[in-house]
């Protein structure tokens, strides 16, 4: 099982190395920098209100079993 995990991690790391290598090969971005004003609008920010995101992530983590893959959360129990 541990060998399997190591192989999986190596595979992901190699893929990321290749992705990074590609960035230096001058691949044309299909959305040009000047076409990104909509995505750069503050209303599109997932982290528009970071302090509120941290709070709601903590509320869910204390009441539900699922955890992880959130930008924020964790910290203490508060679970009685």
């Amino acid at each position: 099982m541990r060998m399997k995990n190591k192989l999986a991690l190596l595979f992901v790391s190699c893929v990321m190395s290749q992705l990074s290598a590609c960035s230096s090969l001058a691949i044309e971005p299909w959305v040009k920098p000047y076409e990104r004003q909509n995505l750069a609008d503050p209303i599109m920010s997932n982290n528009r209100h970071p302090i509120a995101n941290m709070h709601i992530a903590h509320v869910y983590e204390a009441r539900e079993s699922a955890r992880g893959a959130e930008a924020a959360g964790g910290g203490g129990c508060g679970c009685n």
């Binding site: 995990n5 190591k6 991690l9 190596l10 992901v12 790391s13 190699c14 990321m16 190395s17 992705l19 990074s20 290598a21 960035s23 230096s24």
Partner: peptide, 16 residues
């Protein structure tokens, strides 16, 4: 696993 993963990632991100 963590050390291998991080070293490879940092190596991958250098030179940008």
């Amino acid at each position: 696993n963590v050390i291998v993963f991080l070293l490879l990632f940092i190596a991958a991100t250098l030179g940008s």
